[in-house]
Design a protein around this nucleic acid. Structure first.
Lengths: 172, 172
DNA sequence: CTCGTTTGGCTAACGCTGTTAGCCAAGACG
DNA sequence: CGTCTTGGCTAACAGCGTTAGCCAAACGAG
C-alpha cells in the first residue's frame, strides 16, 4: 500500500467518524505520525484527497446498487446505503464532480444500475436519480419534519415511476 | 433598518456574488466600515447569520412558487428560481434547517405551493419536493454529464408524477 | 566503494478563518 | 449631574491550508 493510499484511508476514517470538518491536513498527519507539511510529498493538496474520497464513495455506492434486480429494491438499496454512510454519500454527490481526477469508468459504473432498471432509458434514469438523490439529501439534511413517514413517501414516489414506465428514449 | 438587518443584507450580497466562502466575518465588517469583532454586538455568531440567510432564501423561494397554478408551472418555477439564485437555493436546502431560529410559519409557507398542487396530499408533496430538489441539486452541482437534456428529464419526471396522481393520504 | 540524486521527513512561517477579552467614547435616562 | 447602555475599537488565540527551505537516509550508476 502506497503512502498515498494510506492517506486516503485515514481520510475516509476521519470523514466517517467526524464529518467533513474532521478531515484536516493536521489531523490526517497526526494519525499517520507525521507533520502536516509532509503530506504534500504524497498529495498535491486537500482537493486531491477529497477527489479520491469522492471516487471511493462512488465506487462503494455503485457496488451497493449492483445486485438490485428491479426498481423497488434499487430504491431501497440506494436509500439504505446513503443512510448508513451519510458522510460518504455527501462527498459523493455534494462536491462538484472532479471528472478530470476520476478514474475512467467510475461515473459510468455508478450510473449503470440506474440505467438497468430503466431499460437503458437515459432520461428516465436521470429522473430516477434526481428523485432518489433528492429524497435522500433532504432526509440527511433533516429537512422533513420530525415524524414524517418517509417510507410512505418512497413507496409513493416509486409507484409513480413504475406507472410512468420507460420514456421515449428507450431502444433495447 | 436595524444594524442586524443591515448585516444580513450585506451577507446576502456577498453570498450571491462570491458564494458561501465569500461570506466571512471580516469581509462583512469591511463592507459595513467596521471591524469584525464589532459584528458580535449585533449578532451571536456566524451560524445566526446563516440561519437568517436561510430564512430569507426560503421566503424568496416560497414567493417565487406562489403564483404557479399547476404542477408543470410549479416545477418550472422551482427550477428557474434555483438556477437564478443558486447560492441562496443552496443555503436554503443544504444547511440543516435551524427550526429554532426560524420565524414561525416560514417553513409552512414554503411548503404550501407544493401541497396545493398535490391537492393537500402530504406524501405526494414530499415526493414532489424530493424530485424537484434532487434534479436541481444535481444540476447545480454539475453532476449530469455536459450536454444532458435536462428539459427532457424534467418533462419526463413531471409526466410520471401526473400519471401517479394524488396518493392515498388525500382527503379534501 | 563512492558520489549524486531522489525520497520523505522536519521546522518556521504566512495569510486566512471565527471568536474572545477588555478598553473606551458617546448617548440615553433617572 | 451621574450612571448605564450602546457600539465601536485593538490585541490576541487557536485552528485552517499551504509554502519555503533544510536535512538525513536510501538508492542507483560508474
Amino acid at each position: 500500500m502506497t503512502r498515498r493510499e494510506e492517506i486516503v484511508d485515514v481520510a475516509e476514517r476521519l470523514l466517517e467518524r467526524g464529518g467533513p470538518e474532521a478531515v484536516t491536513m493536521r489531523r490526517l498527519a497526526d494519525e499517520l505520525g507525521i507533520q502536516a507539511p509532509s503530506l504534500y510529498k504524497h498529495v498535491a493538496g486537500k482537493p486531491e484527497i477529497e477527489a479520491a474520497l469522492q471516487q471511493r464513495a462512488l465506487q462503494r455506492l455503485a457496488a451497493a446498487l449492483e445486485a438490485a434486480p428491479d426498481l423497488p429494491s434499487l430504491a431501497a438499496a440506494y436509500r439504505r446505503w446513503a443512510l448508513r454512510h451519510p458522510r460518504l454519500y455527501e462527498i459523493a454527490t455534494r462536491l462538484p464532480l472532479a471528472r478530470e481526477r476520476l478514474a475512467p469508468g467510475v461515473e459510468a459504473a455508478a450510473a449503470a444500475p440506474l440505467l438497468r432498471v430503466t431499460g437503458g432509458d437515459l432520461t428516465a434514469a436521470r429522473a430516477l436519480w434526481g428523485l432518489a438523490h433528492g429524497l435522500v439529501d433532504l432526509e440527511l439534511a433533516g429537512r422533513f419534519p420530525p415524524g414524517a413517514d418517509l417510507d410512505a413517501v418512497w413507496t409513493h414516489a416509486m409507484a409513480a415511476r413504475v406507472a410512468a414506465g420507460p420514456g421515449p428514449g428507450v431502444t433495447g
